[in-house]
Structures are given as structure tokens and as C-alpha cells.
Write a protein that binds this DNA or RNA. Structure first.
Length: 573
RNA sequence: CGGGGCGUAGCGCAGUCUGGCUAGCGCACCUGCCUUGGGAGCAGGGGGUCGGAGGUUCAAAUCCUCUCGCCCCGACCA
């Protein structure tokens, strides 16, 4: 397309709202425009990149045996009540009322809708498995949208749902999707890692997130230095010590100390002149399984996902002031395990050392010289803290965990029978027995893939897009559009590229060359063909590869063949 | 939801504390000249209910009250 007729407006200056590189570049390159917080329009150049990703996704999903559907964005509350999520989904679910007073929601995900469809159509094991997917706009009323399209409220997602007759089938469906995802992200030119993830209260042990490695990622991944183990922060385990028991304690007793106003770990440490690792943090939680205390070392953080698993509970939250006071007889900041009568879970790391400083269960008091084995009654020991850099790998003896950051672009997990059971999606097996279908669900944040790709493919001048997702793989840039031979040659090359199916921009704007060069760099066009009077005198044009900066001189007659050779196969992995 | 910051032309900003001339600058845009291998130059021009409402005042972008929106940090999160 001719630049002069494109709806494409680049910006020299960065809008103030943008923080991360992909957001800045997408705005500067005229790919997106914000309409409201977390709600963006895709402009032509951005949409084209999005479509490139969608195409790759469709090809790989279809190849993996999935079939495309398109489900409604607005969903009736009845379905959500049936699955039980109407009341538990919370404020992220944007609810609406229609003119007749009917309750609806903007779909944040589509398990209910798809289950409703499949249950009506499929009644026999002979019809299974099926895998249906769609690429569609979702809405989640995020508490805090950020980073442009990366974490938006309205966003485009590919979601797939598989239905199987038995666990083995479900396993196969899962693996097929896992492999399809690897191909998709590879083809998009992403450096990524599949990590084990927490599947949450939904159940099922299988869940992987596909993380694009990037400094600006919102998620932390722990990855073993010597084996394949990798997991997200919620899930990452820490190798258990050889035996689960507290260290033997010397005889003696703890000592009560006056610590006026010292509530936080820092305050207590400063007041008593000890290190955070010598403290026990005692956090009081309420849950559907009652009130209990979680104990971790002062320099560690409680991992609530792990805590949920240990307790086997669904709802879990930090107790409010009143509950804390009721159970510890002290305001927040002074809870401790000594003399506590509620259930206590202690992190395994606590057994490695002693003595500790703990809360005194009395306002403005802490206890010194406490040995958990000696001074505390019944404590369950388990892994309930966040893993961090340097922790031992849970899978191999040799390695330790490294912490890296990532952007979650895909998530595959086994749903099991949660929805099929709640919504009565049943089939008859070969023995004539009614069984719930076994489901899996597989998401990809399509817009997020584009943003993540830009995060990974950018330099000071702009984007360095991989060919597979670049809106236009080639740009023809005549230095001077008023010079007849230059423009003729440029146009001829452009026409021929177009004829060969290579989408090309012809920068026919009558502006100074510098402006065009800057825009070409900003837009990240993979190959830029510069046509100038000087070169033509030598009988050449120049090709610059954006990602490497390499410049080659090629004759105008050979340039199209040169490009198609470079591009062929580059759309694949 | 808590804390902080910001709303003045499409983008980036000054002016607000200390009220006062026609609301200004850079980029972008339009016209002309000039220029053509890395965001040129000169001249002329268009574009603003200063987020909104109410109030104080002879006079409000500026002071007061309310309100809406946006960004950052935190809390939260299938």
C-alpha cells in the first residue's frame, strides 16, 4: 500500500500514559488508540499485526483438530447461575440489565456457553472428543488495567474448549493443545517458557502457563538452573528438607519483651536489633475451614495458593482486625504462636533455625528466645511460602531456582468435570452408563501476544518485528519522489512485490528521507528497500534488514527474487 | 478500595502558588518558497467552551465547593 493513502500516523513524542516499551511503541506507531481505561481501538497497522497472529493461531488450532466457532459476547445470567459462578465471579464480571429487566454479563470467558452448546448436541461417547475454539473479544472489569493492551479490560482472546470421554482422552487433548501452543508462539518469534501453574480451586493437576520472557512481565517464574522444572510463583515448590521436624531446642524458656508500637517486621527488627530471618511472622486467616494462623520467617512471604492447598479450602483471606483481636487478644502486629489455640501451619523453612522472635499476643509485646519445638504446641509443617531466587529445586538435587519475569500469553488446563457436572453435560459410554464429559480449556491473549512480541523485538529506534507478525514485511523507500527514475524504479519494485503476494508499503510521501527512515525504523518493517539516485547510478538498490541492521546492495532486477527468497519459510517456525 | 500525581489544540508542555491585555511554545496539520541519503530552513495560516458543574469577584485556566476522567504505587485477582 502507498504510505500516502494509509491511515497511519506516527508520533515523535510518547504519550504520557505509556510506561512499558510495547505500549509506547504501539501508540507511537499508530497501532492502537485508547478510548477509556483498559479499552483500546485497533488502528489499521495494529490490526494487521493482530490478524497475523490470529492467522497463525487458526492454522495451528485447525491443524490440531480444533474447529472454530464464534460465541456471543453477552451472556444471560441463567447459565452463570447454573455453573455457580454468578455469585462467585465477583466484580470482574461486568453485569448488565436489558430493557425487560433480564440480567446479563459481558463474557469474561465462555465455559458456560460452550458447555450449553455441547450438552445439547452430544450424547454418545462415539461423538467425542471435540475441541471448539473462537477468537473473540472478552471483557473483564480489571481492578487496574495497565501497560496498554497488555492488561486491558476489553481484550481479544483465543479460547478453546475440549470435551473428552475419559481421562486418557482428556490427556491427549491437553497434550495436543500444549504442542500447538509451542508451535504458535515459536512461529510468532517469541522466546517463551511453558511453566507449571496452579490450577486453583477448579481442580485438576494439569495446568501450564506459556510465559514470554521479558523484564517488564507482571509474573514471576521460578526455573531450575539444572533441570527442566519451571513454575509460576503461585505454584513453584521448594524442595522439602530431608526430615520434617523442628530443631532440638535447648532447655530454658522464652522471654517477654516490651516493644511499643512495633508491628511490622522492620519495626520489630530495628527495635530489638535482630534480622528478619530471626523473626516468625504470624498471619491470621479466615477461611471456609475456619480461622487459623500461618507462620513464616520474617523475610519470607506467605503463598496463599499453597496455603489453600494445604488447608483444602476455597475461600481464604487475611482476617480483619476484630477477628485478630478475638483470637490473639492483641491488635494486629502482635500475633504469635505461643499459647495460640487456633490451628497453626508453619512454613518448612522455620524448622531450620532458632530461636525466634515472635509476637506476644499482647499489645506492644513480643517474645524472644522462642523455640517452636519447645514452646509451641501443635503445628503443621508444610511448604507455604513463595519460592525465591536460590531456593533448592523440588525436582532435582543439583539445581537451585532462578527467578525471572514473564508475560503470560497462554494458559492450558484441565477443567475436569466441574462444568459438565454443574451443567449436566453428559454422554452415554460404551456400557450405556451416563458420564460427565471431561473438559479442558485453553486460552491465548491475542493482543497480548502482539505486545509481548514488541517487548522482545524492539530497540531505541522502534520495533524490530519478526516477519511472521509484521503487518508489512517489506517497505520500498524512494529517496526522492520527484525524481522520475527513482520513483519509476521504486514503483516497479513495489508492483512486482505486490504481484507476488508480498504485502509492501511504498513510502511515496514527498518528505525528507530522514523522516521516512525514522518511520520505517519505528514501524519495524523487516526489510526496507531504499531506492536513490546514487544507487541507481551504480545499478543497485539497498536492502536493510531491520532486526540486524545489515545492509546489502542488490540490483533492481534481482531485488524481488531476493526478497521472496528471504521471506519464504519465514512465516513458519 | 487506600496513597500519590495529572487534566490547557491530535501529541509533548508553559502559564495556576501571587486572579487582570487577544491563552502561549515545540511537534503535527494547511499555503508558498526552498530543500532531498537519517525527524531541514524561511514566511504566512487553521485549530482551544483551559475536563465538567456551581460559587466568589468589576474580572477566573488561575481562588473555593462538588463532580468526571486518566496515570503511577499498593491492596485484590480464574
Amino acid at each position: 500500500m502507498k504510505f500516502s493513502s494509509m491511515f497511519l500516523y506516527t508520533m515523535k513524542e510518547v504519550p504520557r500514559e505509556a510506561e512499558v516499551i510495547s505500549h509506547k511503541l504501539m501508540l507511537r506507531a499508530g497501532m492502537i488508540k485508547k478510548l477509556a481505561s483498559g479499552i483500546y481501538s485497533y488502528l489499521p497497522y495494529g490490526l494487521k499485526a493482530l490478524r497475523r497472529v490470529e492467522t497463525i493461531i487458526r492454522e495451528e488450532m485447525n491443524a490440531a483438530g480444533a474447529q472454530e466457532v464464534l460465541l456471543p459476547g453477552v451472556q444471560p445470567s441463567e447459565l452463570w447461575k447454573e455453573s455457580g459462578r454468578w455469585n462467585v465471579y465477583g466484580k470482574e464480571l461486568l453485569r448488565l440489565i436489558d430493557r425487560k429487566g433480564g440480567e446479563f454479563a459481558l463474557g469474561p470467558t465462555h465455559e458456560e456457553v460452550i458447555t450449553d452448546i455441547v450438552r445439547d448436541q452430544i450424547h454418545s461417547y462415539k461423538e467425542l472428543p471435540v475441541n471448539l475454539y473462537q477468537i473473540q473479544t472478552k471483557f473483564r472489569d480489571e481492578i487496574r488495567p495497565r501497560f496498554g493492551i497488555m492488561r486491558a479490560r476489553e481484550f481479544i482472546m483465543k479460547d478453546a474448549y475440549s470435551f473428552d470421554a475419559d481421562d486418557r482422552g482428556a490427556e491427549k487433548s491437553y497434550e495436543a493443545m500444549y504442542r500447538a501452543y509451542e508451535r504458535i508462539f515459536s512461529r510468532c518469534g517469541l522466546k517463551f517458557k511453558a511453566v507449571e501453574a496452579d490450577s486453583g480451586p477448579i481442580g485438576g493437576n494439569f495446568s501450564h502457563e506459556f510465559m514470554v520472557l521479558a523484564e517488564t512481565g507482571e509474573d514471576v517464574i521460578l526455573s531450575c538452573s539444572s533441570c527442566k522444572y519451571a513454575a509460576n510463583l503461585e505454584k513453584a515448590e521448594i524442595a522439602k528438607p530431608a526430615s520434617l521436624a523442628f530443631q532440638d531446642a535447648p532447655a530454658g524458656t522464652f522471654e517477654r519483651v516490651h516493644t511499643p508500637g512495633a508491628r511490622t517486621v522492620e519495626e520489630v527488627c530495628e527495635f530489638l536489633g535482630v534480622e528478619p530471618r530471626n523473626l516468625v511472622k504470624t498471619l491470621i486467616y479466615t477461611s471456609d475451614k475456619g480461622v487459623f494462623a500461618a507462620l513464616v520467617r520474617g523475610d519470607h512471604e506467605v503463598n496463599e495458593a499453597k496455603l489453600r492447598r494445604v488447608l483444602g479450602c476455597d475461600a481464604l483471606e487475611l482476617a480483619d482486625e476484630a477477628t485478630i483481636e478475638k483470637h490473639t487478644s492483641a491488635p494486629r502486629g502482635f500475633a504469635g504462636p505461643v499459647g495460640l489455640s487456633i490451628r497453626m501451619i508453619a512454613d518448612s523453612a522455620l524448622m531450620e533455625a532458632g530461636p525466634y522472635v515472635v509476637g506476644g499476643n499482647l499489645e506492644d509485646h513480643h517474645l524472644k528466645n522462642v523455640w517452636l519445638s519447645r514452646d509451641v504446641a501443635a503445628v503443621t509443617l508444610d511448604d507455604i511460602r513463595d519460592a525465591r531466587q536460590g531456593d533448592p529445586c523440588p525436582r532435582c538435587a543439583a539445581g537451585s531456582l532462578e527467578a525471572i519475569r514473564g508475560i503470560e500469553v497462554g494458559h492450558v488446563f484441565k477443567l475436569g468435570t466441574k462444568y459438565s457436572q454443574a451443567m449436566n453435560a453428559m454422554f452415554l459410554d460404551e456400557n450405556g452408563v451416563l458420564q460427565p464429559m471431561i473438559m479442558g480449556c485453553y486460552g491465548i491473549g491475542v493482543g497480548r501476544v502482539v505486545a509481548a512480541a514488541i517487548e522482545q523485538h524492539a530497540d531505541e529506534a522502534g520495533m524490530t518485528l519478526p516477519v511472521s507478525i509484521a503487518p508489512y514485511p517489506v517497505m520500498v523507500l524512494p529517496i526522492n519522489v520527484t525524481a522520475g527514475d527513482v520513483m519509476e524504479t521504486a514503483t516497479a519494485i513495489y508492483n512486482e512485490l505486490q504481484r507476488q503476494g508480498i504485502e509492501t508499503i511504498l513510502d511515496d510521501r514527498d518528505v525528507r528521507p530522514g523522516v521516512k527512515f525514522m518511520d520505517a525504523d519505528l514501524l519495524g518493517v523487516p526489510y526496507r528497500i531504499t531506492v536513490g539516485a546514487k544507487g541507481l547510478k551504480e545499478g543497485i538498490v539497498e536492502v536493510k534488514e531491520r532486526s540486524t541492521g545489515t545492509v546489502e546492495k542488490v540490483s533492481p532486477q534481482e531485488i524481488v527474487a531476493y526478497c521472496s527468497a528471504r521471506l519464504s519459510g519465514r512465516n513458519n517456525y
